[in-house]
Simulated scan of single mutants.
Amino acid sequence: MPVEDEREPVGLMAPEDYARSRAAFWGGAAVLFTDAEGKVLVLDPAYRPGTLLLPGGGVDQRERPSAAAVREVAEELGLPIGVRRLLAVDWVSMGNPEFGTVYGLPGETISIWDGGVLEESDIARICLPEDEISSFHFLPPAQAVPQMFPIEGRRMLGALRARIDRAGPAVLEDGEAVGGGPALQRQNVIPRIAVGYQQIAWHPGSEPAADLPVKQAWVWAFDPLGRVVVLVDPRDGHCVLPGGTVEAEDDGPTAAALREAAEEADLHLRDATYLGYLHDPDGAVYGPGTGPNARARYIARITSLGPAPQDVATGITYGRLLVSPMQASELLGLGRAGSEQAEYAARTAAARWGIPLSPPQAAVEIPRTGMVAGQL
């Protein structure tokens, strides 16, 4: 019998040397939950008081990350809820100073899973382990981030953007998107919670009473594919619809909405059509002392988008995105009432102009140089 050749092929490493050369990592898994308003569930761990984090923990040996996520939710929240889809994967380098001091950390690969929206009945069933979790909170993303380790705040935002964007899992390294990431990541979008808007009534197709002044006018501006324009404020990453305050020199709310769209985004529209109004009964949303007022909503079709201008009112240049109406509602933080408004806007545009109903899809970043009708 021929003698087995035990020599190593030229240029290849010995097995033990190859094994030592490979990076070794721990595994972690976390879960992103929100409530009906879009607030994020964060925990205050007893072992790290005052620094919030998402539900989750380490992946045990021979355990899959998705199973670890389910187990951690059961242990930390007492909820038997399965994860839905992978939102983000973050590669954390060994010794990352933002991660905190963890003995023996060789680096970690953390997966963030979508736990969906928790209903009030789910929230009422949350049971915390006394020796591990001190409390839980539902916070707007912008309020949660400063109370988390920086890397964990970026990771949470990356997962939340991926959930809204539907463009697939975010790929992160030390909490930062690889290659800049998709549009929501590049624009540093922070989904907002529009304080007060979840409680004021939406009146589709109705005109406000004659004694109810219209203080603001905003527009759902549609492209031929059924997507709408949202503007990203670079100061805080929050999104708004085109529109704004009705000024004394405006020829009514429709003119105000068209003027604001042009000033803020060089957005030119046609066929502006009244959609309905929000009734602000005490003026608290607009400002103290305002009194009862209405906020008009319109739909319109995009003619063109010019170069991104500097807004004459604020001096800033907004980022501009095309998203489906339902994604716009999520980014605007209008809660369930906003979802109803977005669906009504889409169906009205479909019935009036034959514009298709746009499914949620990857957000499109409008170039700073603008887009003409043939590009829309």
Rank of each mutant, 00 (worst) to 15 (best):
A67T: 06
A67K: 08
A67Y: 06
A68C: 07
A68H: 05
A68N: 05
A69H: 05
A69T: 07
V70E: 03
V70W: 03
R71G: 15
R71I: 09
E72M: 14
E72S: 10
E72R: 15
V73W: 04
A74V: 12
A74L: 10
E76K: 15
L77D: 02
L77G: 02
L77E: 03
G78L: 09
G78S: 10
L79I: 13
L79S: 12
P80W: 11
P80K: 14
P80Q: 13
P80T: 14
I81T: 15
G82W: 12
G82A: 13
V83N: 06
V83C: 07
R84Y: 03
R84M: 04
R85F: 02
R85I: 02
R85D: 09
L87W: 14
L87A: 13
A88W: 04
A88C: 06
A88D: 07
V89C: 10
V89M: 11
D90S: 05
W91L: 11
W91M: 12
W91N: 12
W91Q: 12
V92G: 00
V92E: 02
V92D: 00
S93M: 10
S93C: 15
S93L: 11
S93F: 15
G95D: 13
G95W: 07
N96G: 08
N96D: 14
E98A: 03
E98D: 04
E98W: 06
G100F: 09
G100A: 11
G100H: 11
G100L: 12
T101V: 04
T101L: 04
V102C: 00
Y103I: 05
Y103G: 04
Y103F: 05
G104A: 05
G104Q: 06
G104M: 07
G104S: 05
G107I: 10
G107S: 08
E108S: 09
T109V: 14
T109C: 10
I110N: 08
I110L: 07
S111T: 07
W113E: 03
W113Y: 04
W113L: 01
D114Y: 06
G115R: 01
G116F: 14
V117M: 09
V117E: 09
L118H: 01
L118T: 01
E119T: 01
E119D: 02
E119V: 01
E120P: 09
E120M: 06
S121K: 03
D122T: 02
D122R: 00
I123T: 01
A124V: 01
A124Q: 02
A124P: 01
